[in-house]
Amino acid sequence: MQAYQWGVFALALGAFGLGTTEFFPMGLLPTIAEGVEVSIPTAGLLISAYAVGVMFGAPLVTLYLTRFSHKFSLILLMAIFFIGNVFSALATDYSVLMISRITTSLSHGAFFGIGALVAMKLAPPGKQGTAVASMFLGLTIANIIGVPVATWLGQSLHWRMAFAATSALGLVAMIGLWRTLPQMEKPNRPNVKQELQAILQPAALRTFLTTVLCAGSMFTLYTYVTPILQTLASISDSNIAYLLMMAGIGFTLGNFISGKLADRSPDLSLVVALTGQVIILALFSLLVSDLISAIAMIFVWGVVNFMIGPPLQMKVMTIADKAPGLASSINIGAFNLGNALGAAIGGAVITLGFGYAWIPAAAATLSLSALMLLGINRKLSAQAPSAS
């Protein structure tokens, strides 16, 4: 590998750890609830609290870290990740576990935000999209390997072992970042007013909203994917795990494709992905009828969903070029807001009595809205120079 690729690999390792710690508690909720003597819905608040911590922590932590070099900041964020997971493993009760999870979440958005910026700076011209996608590859692989392994550890040994093993990933990532990233100068002290102006400009806000809609579409379906597949295709519990693994493989392939397309044009990658999402989601309930069709559709759905992340990160950093690190971190927060939005919309579809078969259609509406917003953003951006 080239020298810069080792640095990107270390960033991907950190992303792998963050993806693992964010998602594996979903598969261990009953075990964790029993361990800290709370109900399953109460234990579920640990997941919600993590998402909220990412959403609010991303901009605040990123602003604070502007006084340090990017290399030091990334290592510090992995140290927070390590400490948070260690304390989660040692938590004596629910309140301690909740505080530990919130602590861990504070490292999430800032790491992806600053990490994406560093990946772009490390990469040679024409390879920035691939570099960002390579970093996010850690997140997709976490869904294929990290989450299942951590879940297995929690079920086979103890839920505390899952957190302990995940904390070790943070330690390895810290060493990797220290050894592979070049020395980086401390950035100039930020002009907070200028940075706020950069992220509050209409084009940046529209891009953040695009991220919310894209993530909302993904999690409208993903949150309820098990009952949807069981309803549409009578998928057994034993096959659900394989289908989720196929989704993870699709995530990985989509992330790779998006990096290549984003090197040419971030907008091209977004248009292809969002158009694919609208088509797949519109046809989902019509075409999924057995195991084979479910495998095919969930795989393609995974591909088009993870073609979104890298180009959106590049786009928002380009638009808010006076505050790329802050913009990138806020975009991660926007993704988590979309996570909550999608779960709520899917739940509303069920509550209103439409049934699981209508959830993909609701997700398609969000993807179509994101595609329309992308077109509006391009049109307004093209008009801006002539207007000035």
Rank of each mutant, 00 (worst) to 15 (best):
R378Y: 06
G325N: 13
Y94A: 06
A43R: 03
L11C: 04
E185N: 12
P266H: 08
G355F: 06
L352A: 14
A361G: 12
H158Y: 11
M120P: 02
F299G: 06
G254H: 05
T207P: 02
D290G: 08
F56H: 08
G325E: 13
L270Q: 08
V96A: 14
N85M: 04
P385C: 09
T151S: 09
A89E: 00
R67D: 02
I144T: 05
N188Y: 14
A91C: 12
D93E: 12
S167E: 05
N377K: 15
S105C: 06
G154R: 00
A203M: 11
L373W: 09
T220M: 07
I330N: 03
A382L: 11
S73V: 00
L374R: 08
T20R: 09
A12D: 01
K379V: 09
M246G: 11
F306I: 10
K127E: 12
Q5T: 12
T21M: 12
I145D: 02
T140M: 05
I228S: 03
L171C: 09
S48F: 11
V118F: 03
F136V: 03
A49V: 08
A133V: 02
F163T: 03
F335K: 04
I47W: 05
A363V: 06
A162C: 07
I102Y: 05
M314T: 00
T42F: 10
V300M: 11
L106A: 05
L274C: 04
V316F: 03
A33W: 08
A131S: 10
M297D: 01
R160Q: 13
A49Y: 09
P30L: 11
I80P: 03
L139Q: 03
I280F: 07
I80L: 11
S367G: 13
Q194H: 14
G7L: 09
I330T: 00
A296L: 14
L60D: 02
P311V: 05
F68K: 07
R378I: 09
N377E: 15
T130I: 08
S73Q: 01
V316L: 04
R101D: 03
G129C: 03
I40F: 08
M317R: 14
G154I: 01
